[in-house]
């Protein structure tokens, strides 16, 4: 079995997520080649063939250009599976390739199932097993589902690719994430508020618990999107990645993007009215209760300790 892995490069750097595709190929037991649009003077650590185009020439985000290059690599390699990360780069490029090759795509693979692939459904509450019809498919992998075992190593054999076209979509530049004075990645205790707080006034309950514990307040994406908390408090794949000793998730269902940002926490307590919420999968203690009643109760007891 042969796979073509699609690596990621942004703002002058090869992203470490590239090595998750390598770990997936190993798990699949497949021979792997890597495709990358990057700086040719900074090669990835990879033992195998590397189809490499210069980012200086065709741009870091240029979907038509990257698709044309990828089609060259697919033609040369004839892989059974073309593997992306399920990321802002991968989910943008994978369906374009699937359509161009008339192949099935299976998105956000979390596990293998005897030739089929397991993906989440309903925000992680359910799992679907999907089988591509035919021998070949495009896959995107859930971030963190296939972790690299050990440091990546090796020197690739480079097969250079070139593209000569004009970009339809123009990348003007990048804007850094807004980071205030809050660095949640160093916090030992984080108490996070989710949609379950119901209204912005209830954020005070979360702040109260964080204060008695001497911790920081975090927030899930819906709370930030609603403007109830600033982005610098957001925990998740598009916010901050945290690893506190204690993480208390209040009214957070546990969307994949949120779990990606907090699953390295030492001890996780979830307070949620929905006992089936996916946060329960990563919680050491799940308190099935309304946070509006339970959090003040807990805060009062801790304050009196």
């Amino acid at each position: 079995m042969k796979v073509l892995l699609v690596g990621e490069y942004r703002d002058g750097k090869i992203l470490p997520s590239t090595y998750e595709t390598v770990a997936f190929a190993r798990k699949l037991g497949a021979a792997a080649a890597l495709f990358l649009v990057a700086d040719p003077s900074d090669l990835p650590r990879f033992a195998g063939k590397l189809y490499l185009a210069a980012a200086q020439q065709c741009g870091e985000y240029n979907p038509e250009g990257h698709l044309a290059l990828l089609l060259q690599a697919v033609q040369a390699e004839e892989p059974d599976f073309i593997v992306f990360l399920h990321s802002a780069y991968g989910w943008d490029l994978a369906p374009r390739l699937a359509l161009a090759l008339d192949l099935p795509q299976i998105s956000e693979v979390v596990a293998l199932a005897e030739g089929a692939f397991v993906v989440p459904a309903c925000n992680g509450k359910l799992r679907r097993t999907l089988r591509p019809l035919g021998q070949r498919a495009v896959l995107t992998l859930q971030s963190g589902a296939f972790n690299a075992d050990g440091e990546p190593a090796g020197t690739p054999q480079v097969a250079p690719l070139t593209w000569a076209g004009s970009a339809v979509v123009e990348l003007v530049g990048y804007e850094a994430a807004s980071r205030g004075a809050v660095d949640l990645s160093r916090a030992e205790i984080i108490v996070s508020a989710g949609r379950g707080i119901g209204k912005p006034e209830n954020l005070a309950l979360i702040e109260g618990l964080a204060t008695v514990l001497g911790g920081e307040v975090g927030a899930s994406r819906p709370v930030v999107d609603a403007g109830w908390a600033p982005h610098e408090r957001q925990v998740g794949s598009t916010g901050q990645t945290v690893a506190p000793k204690l993480y208390i998730a209040c009214g957070i269902s546990g969307a994949v993007q949120h779990l990606a940002g907090m699953k390295k926490s030492g001890f996780v307590v979830a307070i949620n009215t929905d006992g089936d919420a996916p946060i329960g999968e990563v919680a050491d203690v799940l308190v099935v209760a309304d946070l509006k009643q339970f959090v003040p109760l807990l805060t009062g007891k801790l304050g009196g300790v």
């Binding site: 192949l103 099935p104 795509q105 299976i106 199932a113 089929a116 989440p120 459904a121 992680g124 509450k125 359910l126 799992r127 679907r128 097993t129 999907l130 089988r131 591509p132 019809l133 035919g134 006992g275 996916p278 329960g280 999968e281 990563v282 919680a283 050491d284 203690v285 799940l286 308190v287 099935v288 209760a289 309304d290 009643q293 339970f294 109760l297 007891k301």
Partner: peptide, 25 residues
């Protein structure tokens, strides 16, 4: 169709978690 759904199921619970019910003292 290019893909067939074989199964929909609930994920395996991690199992180690303790479940406590109710907003009680």
């Amino acid at each position: 169709a290019l893909v067939r759904t074989e199964k929909l199921a609930f994920p395996d619970k991690r199992g180690a978690g303790v479940v406590l019910e109710g907003a009680t003292s």
